[in-house]
Every structure is written in C-alpha cells, then in structure tokens.
C-alpha cells in the first residue's frame, strides 16, 4: 500500500515537473526578459511592420520609474479620455483604445517612431494597453513596453501624477 502511494506520488511529481519544464522552455525568452527587465532598443530606424510578431515587453514599476526619471520614454495612457483627465501619470499622453483610429494621426505627428513607449491602463486584468501596443506595432512603433501594474500601481507607489481631480 505504502509502495503504491510512493509510486503514485512519484508519477504526480514527474508529470508536474515535465509539464513545468516544457512551459519554462516554451516561455524562456519571456522569462528571461521578465527576470532581467531587459528590453530591446533598436539601433536602426524602425520599419513599418505589418505584423505583431515582435514581443511587447512587460516592465515592472521600478523600471518604469527609472525611465520616467531619466525622461527616456513616452508614457501612453490607454484608458478612456474621461478617466485620463481625472488623473494620470505625469506627462502621459492619452490614446484611448476605444478611439485609437481617430487619435492616431495626431499621435504619430507628436511621437517619433524611435521613441520608447510605455503603455498602461487600469492595472492587472486590464488589457487595453496590450491591445493598443499591438496596434501601435503595426503602425511602426517597435519599442513598446507594457506596464501591467498601470495607473493604480503607479499611484499607490506615490509617484507623480496629474489631472483634474488632484
């Protein structure tokens, strides 16, 4: 009986380990980038891409703050205009996913294609920033970082924000 339980536990462990190793191998690039916080900065001018093949890098709060302090990135708020005007990350540009098509020409005039873009929305569970990132990739922006903690994480960390409600 004890032998049977041991064997069963061994089988369970092997199945979990094999599946987990497969997952790590499959996602090794994502894991590496998440671990190092590295992001690719293109040396050559970006070409207009018609695919969404390039991976959009996730970026953590402290890396975002670092880029904010060094003024090396453009912050793009994917939330609704009304929410943006209440409060947003200081100096962020509004590009709501809902009316991206009408707002994009103005955005493209203002923001060079070589810019590092940090896209955010209402935090984990909000996917507008990622969807917006895909859209911007197809328009030629290649250096896109997704700040998944979004405005809630930035605000709760006490970092600079601005807006009508403040």
């Amino acid at each position: 009986m004890k032998e049977k339980s041991k064997k069963l536990f061994f089988e369970m462990t092997v199945i979990v380990l094999l599946a987990a190793i497969t997952g790590i191998a499959w996602n090794h690039r994502l894991l590496r980038d998440a671990y190092t916080g590295k992001y690719a900065i293109a040396k050559t001018p970006p070409e207009i891409s018609t695919t969404t093949g390039a991976e959009m890098m996730p970026v953590g709060l402290m890396q975002v703050k670092d880029l904010f302090d060094r003024k090396e990135a453009v912050f793009v708020d994917a939330r609704e205009n009304s929410v943006f005007s209440q409060a947003h990350i200081a100096n962020a540009l509004s590009l709501p996913l809902a009316n991206v098509d009408s707002a994009l020409p103005m955005f493209q005039q203002k923001v060079p294609y070589s810019s590092i873009l940090i896209l955010y929305c209402s935090g984990y569970g909000c996917h507008d920033s990622k969807d917006l990132g895909k859209k911007l990739q197809t328009k030629g922006y290649q250096q896109i970082l997704i700040f998944e903690g979004g405005f809630p994480e930035w605000q709760s960390a006490g970092f600079p924000i601005e807006g009508a409600d403040l």
């Binding site: 199945i15 599946a19 497969t22 997952g23 790590i24 996602n27 994502l30 894991l31 671990y35 996730p58």
Partner: peptide
C-alpha cells in the same frame, strides 16, 4: 508571477 504563468497552464494542459 511570470514563472507561474509560464508553468501552470502547461500542467493544466498536460493533465
């Protein structure tokens, strides 16, 4: 969070 996201779905799918 990323490590869990990379592994748990594969365990689910294998099961």
């Amino acid at each position: 969070n990323y490590l869990v996201a990379a592994t748990i779905p594969w365990v689910e799918a294998a099961c």
